[in-house]
């Protein structure tokens, strides 16, 4: 399995990370090195083995479905790069 520049660009797009075209060959090369390392896993016989979901076979705790918190709009917005009129502000999404 070899990653070309087109695939590298597609992965960068999926990850929402802007990568300059000039850097794509290097990026593809790095991916291939790492994937080459990961490729060893294909030697392992995993027939009939369950994929691990959780290291400890524990049942996740449940809690009552009740409102326990809220009314903290100012705190929620306090770290926003752009907050206006009680909302997170972002560039226009719909035309």
């Amino acid at each position: 399995m070899s990653i070309d520049e087109k695939t590298a660009a597609h992965v960068a797009k999926l990850a929402r990370i802007r990568v300059d075209d000039a850097r794509l060959p290097e990026l593809a090369q790095e991916f291939n090195t790492i994937l080459g390392f990961i490729e060893q896993l294909s030697e392992v016989d995993v027939e009939g083995v369950e994929p691990m979901v959780s290291v400890e076979p524990m049942r996740l705790k449940r809690r009552a479905d009740l409102v326990t918190d809220g009314n903290q709009q100012a705190k929620v917005l306090s770290n926003a790069p752009d907050a206006r009129e009680g909302f997170f502000a972002v560039p226009k999404v719909v035309e």
């Binding site: 990961i38 896993l41 995993v46 083995v49 369950e50 994929p51 691990m52 979901v53």
Partner: peptide, 12 residues
Amino acid sequence: AYYNRARKVRTL
């Protein structure tokens, strides 16, 4: 090919 296989090897 990658993620599920890795989770199986993790079980082993």
